[in-house]
Amino acid sequence: MQKCFLTFKKGQTLWRESGRYLMVQTKIPQAWTDSINQANKMALIAWVKETGIDLVQINGQRRYGGPPPGWVGDPPPTGSEVFIGKLPQDMYENTLIPLFQSVGKLYEFRLMMTFSGLNRGFAYAKYSNRRSAKVAITALNNFEVQEGCTILVCKSTEKCELSVDGLATSLSRKRLEAMLQEAAEGILSITLYTSPYQKRAQLAVLKYNSHRAAAMAKKSLMEGNMRLYEEEMRVDWLKPDLKQKLRSSEKPLAIWVSRGKSSGSTKQAQVHLSPVLCNVLDRLDALCQRRHLGAPLFFTKCVQANPDGWLRFWCQVVIPAYPLPFSGFTWVRQDVPGASGHDKAKDVLALQVLRMLGCRLA
């Protein structure tokens, strides 16, 4: 069976398996009642069956897409998402998704839910491009969705990066990873620096796959005034001035990517700032072909060149059938005449991806 994507009646959960919809009994608290908005819930069920749309409910939000079926290419750029507020709590995706699709192609739609099955009054719609998001704001802000009820539609603040300062230098990578996985799911990468603000401390930059995931991690890490090795952490959104300072003057101590929790285990791939296997690109291409993922596409950009020969690259690889691109920063040294720093950066990223996909390199 696939993931549960809709709960609509006390003790029952709708599952989808091989195109069929199955009712499965579940044990849930008495707070759930049949009487809450039952007519609209049944209308939603009918719409889901008619359209075949999958709605995945996880941790208080119900999501369509991200990416939607048939999506090809990169996720939309920053600025493509809108915030939707002042929603009637008895309104669901069968009304909202067609409304927001009417002004542009949706990449993702997320409706925040209460345990009782009502919505929490707000949602997020991410479009395929920034232009569609602007059209949605112009066309749908103050739109009357019910008699006497107009909604708010505005640009979404999509902060996805946190800075965690004050980490003890004795803190092991293993413990840091465990702490971050416990805080929230959705972490994409961790970059560790020497703290520019505190002596004998480290600063970690955390990148998440969504603003919501980053916000949940921030809340979890800040709760209870967490301390590690007697060092108090300072958790905040990654500010532009700090980001620029790290880019221009700080070499990372380490970079690694986290795939999150999978069957109780966490898989990471650390970037070692050292030579990589010479045939790693061929191995990645062969692995993608074997798994029918499509040929990987690489994008690299040199963002910093130091006098000592070290080059800092932003690099990304898009695998067509994989849900998210792999991206990050790495340092390489152009110490061989005629060698391309771009090629080295591709090798480093390809090595990460191979490790994360579980390929043996020996």
Rank of each mutant, 00 (worst) to 15 (best):
E158R: 05
T157G: 12
P196A: 13
C4I: 10
L118R: 03
K218E: 02
M356C: 06
V164G: 01
Q101E: 03
S220M: 07
G70R: 13
L357S: 03
E158A: 11
Q270L: 13
K126S: 14
V145K: 01
L167R: 03
L87P: 09
W71A: 02
Y229K: 11
A201M: 00
A204K: 11
V336E: 07
A286M: 01
I53N: 00
R16D: 00
L351S: 04
P98H: 04
L349V: 06
L242I: 06
C315N: 06
Y229L: 08
L206T: 06
P252A: 08
Q89V: 07
T114L: 08
G117Q: 08
K245H: 15
K3R: 10
L284A: 00
T194C: 08
G79Y: 11
R120L: 04
Y124W: 05
K251D: 13
M226Q: 14
C149V: 12
L221P: 03
Q270S: 10
D90C: 05
S262N: 12
S163Y: 08
E232P: 00
P98K: 05
G19S: 10
G65K: 03
A254C: 10
L96I: 10
L87N: 05
A254Y: 04
K10F: 10
G66T: 02
I36H: 04
V348H: 15
Y322G: 03
S116M: 15
E108K: 09
K159C: 03
L242N: 07
Q244D: 11
M216L: 12
A204F: 14
C288R: 04
E158M: 12
P196E: 06
Q146P: 00
S80A: 14
G19E: 08
F298W: 14
F8G: 05
K9R: 10
G338I: 04
L180V: 08
S172V: 00
A214E: 01
P307M: 04
A204I: 09
L221I: 03
D74W: 09
G309T: 08
F298R: 10
T13N: 15
T95V: 15
G328Q: 01
R291S: 07
F5H: 09
I58E: 13
E230D: 03
I137L: 12
T157Q: 10
